[in-house]
Structures are given as structure tokens and as C-alpha cells.
Design a protein around this nucleic acid. Structure first.
Length: 271
DNA sequence: CAGTGGGCCTGAGTGC
DNA sequence: TGCACTCAGGCCCACT
């Protein structure tokens, strides 16, 4: 479900509330993608010192160790003042002195993993191969352009795989490619420098706008304070197969790439 | 090494 | 109402 904007909006929605809070206890539901990796009891009395984001991971910093959270396809976090009984899709409750952080994830592709330190192998395994952060100063245009040039895969796949740039998922890949006028099926290496630069700018632009709009709420995404996103209502192509392009009126088309749907306007995205 | 395809899970929607 | 089927915002891993 959540791509970078949804994860970032979620982070912002509870970082101030939880920072400085002391962990009282942890409650687990069904196992997620991976086991927690520690005895829940050892987390008691640790202090949450901050919440960072890397790609689509949230990093919950503790005064000793950290928790890596991923929302998978269907996960969402909620931070509430008081504990409530866990429902069938609630899999992780972090009870703290400031409130309860709860992960709800029907499909359980998400994860919460403990790491005693940033140098733990698990951290390297999960975060080690991630590409540039598109909304940070770390996102270098020349590295992006060179990276595209080096790949023979379809540009949409390159955006999705996270090795060059992180956080761009199925919605925002289609949207960024629309803004740049590039078809999702175009081989990355065949995109010239000028168009690659345009795509670089489009990625920043679409992700920034999406964060401003509170992300996209397609099914039931909401951030940790319960608010929903509104970006989906201004998407140009995602989920709009057969609907006239907002720019030129041509019917938006859908293609399958690696078991995922891609959407594009055949007129605005000519190559 | 890069690239592709399968699989992990559950729920919603569709067509018969 | 029931069943079979497809699809869904992600990502790891085995394979070529």
C-alpha cells in the first residue's frame, strides 16, 4: 500500500507525540513477514528518541537499539492515547508512556524488526541496498541519469526496484513517468539525458505534492492520527484506464509489467 | 552481475 | 447466496 509519501506522512503524524516516551510493554498479534527478532520484554523501559524514514521503512530509534517498521501493502500505524483490545489484523502494539503505537496490517506483508544497533546484519540486509532518497540532498541528478543509462530494464521497473531511488511505488512511478512524458515500458538505457533529467524532476515533484496532500488513500490508508490522504483525486493516470487524459483527452491505457499494472497516456507519453 | 517470476497473505470486487 | 477467480499501494529470494 504505502509508498514514500504515505510513510512520510505517517511518520510526521506521530513523531512529535512519541518522541521522549518510555516503552511500557509490547504486545504481538500474528507474525508478520519476519519475527520481531527479540524478546518483547527487553524493550520495556527503553525510550523512543525519534522516528526516521529510509525509503518505505520507518526507523523507530530507541535510547538503546531500534525498531524497523514496514507497512507492506496493507499496513497502517495508529498512535492513540489509550490501549484498546487488539483486533484480528492488529499485529504489534507498542505501549508507551505517551500512548499506544499500533500496526494494523490485514495482509501481513509488513514487518517490525528489532536491531540492537545499526551495524546489525539485519539492518544491512534490509536497508543496505537501498538507493537515493528522492526528497533529500542525497538525490543527485547526475547519479540518477547515469543509473538509468546503465539499466536495460523497463524504466518503470527500474523506478520500482529501489536500487537507484527509493520510495517510488506503483502509483507514483506511473505518475512521475506521466509528468516526464515517458512510457513505463521504455528501456531505461534508451532515455536521453534531457528526458532523464525531466524524470528526475518529476519524481521530486510528484512525491512532494503527494506528501503535501497527505498521501493517497485508495482503500483504507490513514496516518497515525487517523487522517486520510487526498492525492489520488489528482492522479493523472494511475487507476484511470479508459478515462480521458486530464491534459489531452486521450484515453489512458493500462499495461502489465511484472505482475503490476502501469498506466500511461499514449499521446502525452510518446516514447 | 542484472533481470525476471513466484510467492508471501487477506479482503474486495466481479461474473457465473 | 455461493463459488471461482482476479486484483490490490511491496519486497525477498531462487532462478536464468
Amino acid at each position: 500500500m504505502p509508498e514514500l509519501p504515505e510513510v512520510e506522512v505517517t511518520r510526521r503524524s506521530f513523531v512529535d507525540a512519541i518522541s521522549g516516551a518510555r516503552v511500557l510493554m509490547v504486545q504481538l498479534g500474528k507474525t508478520l513477514r519476519w519475527p520481531l527478532g527479540c524478546e518483547p520484554a527487553i524493550l520495556a523501559d527503553r525510550v523512543v528518541t525519534g522516528v526516521r524514514r529510509r525509503g518505505k521503512y520507518l526507523l523507530l530509534d530507541l535510547d538503546k537499539g531500534m525498531l524497523l517498521l514496514h507497512l507492506g501493502m496493507s499496513g497502517s500505524l495508529r498512535f492513540t492515547p489509550a490501549p484498546e483490545p487488539m483486533g484480528p489484523h492488529d499485529h504489534f502494539d507498542l505501549l508507551t508512556s505517551a500512548g499506544v503505537l499500533r500496526l494494523n496490517d490485514p495482509r501481513r506483508f509488513g514487518a517490525v524488526v528489532y536491531a540492537a544497533s545499526p551495524s546489525e546484519p539485519v539492518v544491512q540486509r534490509l536497508l543496505g541496498k537501498l538507493g537515493m532518497e528522492p526528497l533529500s540532498d542525497d538525490f543527485h541528478q547526475d547519479v540518477f541519469v547515469t543509473g538509468l543509462r546503465a539499466s536495460r530494464a523497463a524504466v518503470k521497473q527500474v523506478l520500482l526496484n529501489g536500487r537507484l531511488v527509493v520510495g517510488v511505488g506503483n502509483i507514483y512511478a506511473s505518475e512521475a513517468l506521466f509528468l516526464a512524458g515517458i512510457r513505463p515500458t521504455t528501456m531505461a538505457a534508451r532515455i536521453g539525458p534531457e528526458r532523464a533529467k525531466k524524470l528526475y524532476e518529476a519524481i521530486r515533484q510528484v512525491l512532494e505534492l503527494a506528501v503535501q496532500r497527505g498521501g493517497s488513500t485508495l482503500r483504507n490508508f490513514s496516518s497515525a492520527d487517523g487522517s486520510v490522504g487526498h492525492f489520488q483525486s489528482e492522479a493523472h493516470v494511475y487507476g484511470r484506464e479508459g478515462i480521458p487524459c486530464r491534459v489531452c483527452g486521450t484515453a489512458v491505457r493500462m499495461v502489465r509489467q511484472g505482475q503490476r499494472s502501469s498506466f500511461f497516456c499514449p499521446r502525452c507519453q510518446r516514447a
